[in-house]
Simulated assay, not measured.
Amino acid sequence: NKCYGNGEFPAIKWNEADVILSLDGDFLGESDNKVENVRLFAENRDVNEKRFNRLYSVEGNLSLTGSNADCRFKLRPDLQYPFVMSLINELQKNRIITLPINTSDYSLSDFAKKEKLDFKLLGKLVEDLSKNKAKSIIYAGEHLTENVQIAVNLLNNLLGNSTLYQSDSVNVSVLPLSTNDELKQLTNNLAAGNVGVVIHLNSNPVYTIPEDLGYKDAIENAGTVVTLTDIESETSAISNFVLPVNQTLEAWGDAKIRTGFYSLQQPVIAPLYDTREEGAILLTWIEQDNEAYTENLFHQYLKKNWEENIYPNLNSNSGYKKFWYQALHDGVVYSDDKIDIPNTINMSIVSQLNGAPEVSGF
């Protein structure tokens, strides 16, 4: 958002990248578009056609992306920022890029020596990035800090790698994830006893929220804790009420993670046990009427939402009933979404990267 003026994150043309540098980002294993990413990545690894990209991975824990890398460097997540800045310094020294930024506090050779990284291989990385302008991509894991993301955006822009951004497709988040500040605020409100009811929807925050936020202790001050889940967890263990919900193969659903299409999910089997669909439970609560619940409540809601909010915008030539069954058959419905991806990066953001390296220990 700070770099381009909006939060739209374009999809990447992995199949056109000859050099890929992944910074603690598992785009082949954990990304929302991992199936597509794997296919695109593999397209440029064709021995018969003598096309073979080169993948560098810099990560703390071994990932699927790291295990497929041609060169893998082991590095803690908190050291990713000084690593990127050292890389920028090396590229500036070689006059590959020019940034109005002071990188004199960073040295790739010193960094490699201190963190026991192979400087010869790092030199090959610098060479590959230099020789493959507009044909390489640097990818940072979503969990890395804002400064790392900004530095990576600047690097991709200066190396001409923004040509590998898909101009007709961006990632979509229907409901943005909570920020760290929002999680802190929630934990503080819980600790102060200001929250009467907490509902966990198929999530396990006692395990997934960082322990230093104190969520597990704070939630003890909530009046009532309800967990909707299809499996026992650390969160369900401390809940007042645990409501078993349908497993994914027993549930209806839909999704939109990218512009250009919607996808549908239909159950493979009927519920095996005494469970209910998450959406049906929420709809019953909204109606405030226990009698409103039926086994196909969420299914009917889903169909109605598609008929009223999605189908009219698709310019389909068939009637809704035929359209619906065709959508279920295909699993995917294509849409003509209008998107606006800025091509110019805000270079004033460089000022945020000035200063001495800041590294916090683990």
Rank of each mutant, 00 (worst) to 15 (best):
D105W: 10
D105R: 06
D105P: 05
D105H: 15
Y106I: 09
Y106C: 05
S107P: 09
L108R: 05
L108I: 10
L108D: 08
L108G: 02
L108W: 04
S109F: 13
S109Q: 11
S109Y: 14
D110E: 15
D110F: 13
D110Q: 15
D110H: 14
D110R: 15
F111R: 02
F111T: 08
F111C: 08
F111Y: 08
A112Y: 05
A112C: 10
A112K: 07
A112R: 09
A112Q: 04
K113F: 07
K113W: 14
E115K: 14
K116S: 09
K116C: 11
L117N: 06
L117F: 10
D118M: 07
D118E: 08
D118C: 04
F119V: 13
K120M: 12
K120F: 07
K120A: 10
K120C: 09
L121R: 08
L122D: 13
L122W: 02
L122N: 12
G123W: 01
K124L: 14
K124Q: 15
K124S: 12
L125F: 10
L125V: 08
L125D: 04
V126R: 03
V126A: 05
V126P: 03
E127R: 09
E127H: 14
D128A: 06
L129W: 10
L129Q: 00
S130C: 07
K131F: 09
K131A: 12
N132G: 04
N132V: 03
K133E: 03
K133I: 05
K133N: 04
K133S: 01
A134I: 04
A134D: 06
K135G: 06
K135C: 04
K135T: 08
S136L: 00
I137A: 00
Y139Q: 00
Y139A: 03
A140Q: 05
A140Y: 05
E142W: 11
E142H: 11
